[in-house]
Each structure stands twice: as structure tokens, then as C-alpha cells.
């Protein structure tokens, strides 16, 4: 079921400057979602494999869950080349491989949110406009505007500097 491809030749893989090259380790090609970890049949098999420490996890950022093809490494260091059909959709608990000796399950990292409290209605209007103008994904909760972080928080705070500096909005914990 797993199809490891072992290579010992000099890597042609990417490097930041095109100079440093290394040896490519085994790459496991995964091309289907076989089920969910919560499916009855899967749960039983995963439970048995788990007792033997044979369940590996691929942890992905929420934003990466929309990809059909990606390179990822499991918590045990297995290099995975994931190439799914275009109509497939990764979700938390997706089982990409399961056999006698090993299973590989996708886990979505928890989404990070930046909670902002506008000072008043006028500030809320401006803040909402600003977030929309930057195409940020947001949600609203208890008078807060929360921005989904898809990169370093610092990059978002930089874009909010004018609001944070003059008190039109403040970051809350």
C-alpha cells in the first residue's frame, strides 16, 4: 500500500541558493484519502496500530489543508509526497495510508486568531473596512473582530499600527 521510493543519488531537490545539496531520504507517495480516523472500521485498525506505536501524524496548518499536492513530514520524520485527486479535500483525521505496519493520519493545527476590540462604532467601521481591504479572513465574537492568522502575527500587527497607536483598536488576550 505504501510506496516508498528510496534514492541514494545526489539530490536535485531545492536549496535556498542552489548550492547546498544532500541525500534524499525515502519518500512516501500518498495519493488518496482512505477514510477518516473516526470511521468505525478505521478506528479499530488505528487503535491496534496505535498500541504498537505505528500511527504517524502529518500536522498541517489550516491554510495548507486546502492543498491537493504538498510535501510534508510526519512526526516520525517520514517524508510524504501527497498528491490527491482534485476533488479530494483534506480534513482533520484524514487517513492517507494504513497497512500492517504503519498508518499515516492528517491532523489540522489549531487556527490562530488575533482578537481586536474597537474603541467605538466609528472605529469598528474603520477597522472592518481596513481588514476587508487587506482581504483578511475575520470572524466576530462578543464585540471583537478576530483576524485569522495565516502568517506571522507581527506582519498583521504592523498593518494595524495606526489603529493600535491611537487607540482606535486594541489587541485583547
Amino acid at each position: 500500500m505504501d510506496r516508498p521510493r528510496r534514492r541514494r543519488k545526489r539530490a536535485r531537490g531545492p536549496c535556498q541558493d542552489g548550492r547546498g545539496r544532500g541525500i534524499v531520504a525515502a519518500m512516501l507517495r500518498l495519493d488518496a484519502i482512505l477514510g477518516l480516523a473516526t470511521d468505525d472500521a478505521m478506528r479499530e485498525r488505528l487503535h491496534a496500530l496505535g498500541h504498537r506505536g505505528a500511527v504517524e501524524t502529518v500536522r498541517l496548518e489550516r491554510s495548507d489543508m486546502r492543498r491537493r499536492r504538498l510535501r510534508a513530514t510526519t512526526d516520525r520524520g517520514t517524508d510524504c509526497a501527497i498528491a490527491l485527486p482534485r476533488d479530494a479535500r483534506l480534513e482533520d483525521g484524514a487517513v492517507l495510508s494504513i497497512g500492517e505496519d504503519r498508518a499515516i493520519v492528517v491532523r489540522a493545527a489549531g487556527e490562530r486568531w488575533l482578537p481586536l476590540r474597537p474603541r467605538d462604532a466609528a472605529a469598528a467601521l474603520e477597522l472592518g473596512y481596513h481588514a476587508g481591504n487587506l482581504h483578511w479572513r475575520v470572524r466576530f465574537r462578543d464585540g471583537l473582530l478576530e483576524v485569522a492568522l495565516e502568517g506571522p502575527e507581527r506582519a498583521y500587527l504592523d498593518r494595524l499600527a495606526a489603529f493600535l497607536d491611537d487607540g482606535r483598536a486594541r489587541r485583547v488576550e
Binding site: 510506496r3 499536492r69 490527491l84 485527486p85 482534485r86
Partner: peptide, 11 residues
């Protein structure tokens, strides 16, 4: 298991 064996379409 590849896409064909799994009954799915070519990726």
C-alpha cells in the same frame, strides 16, 4: 494504494 487501485480519478 494508488488512485486507480482506490477507485479514484487520476490526480
Amino acid at each position: 494504494m494508488n488512485a486507480a487501485e482506490n477507485g479514484t480519478t487520476h490526480p
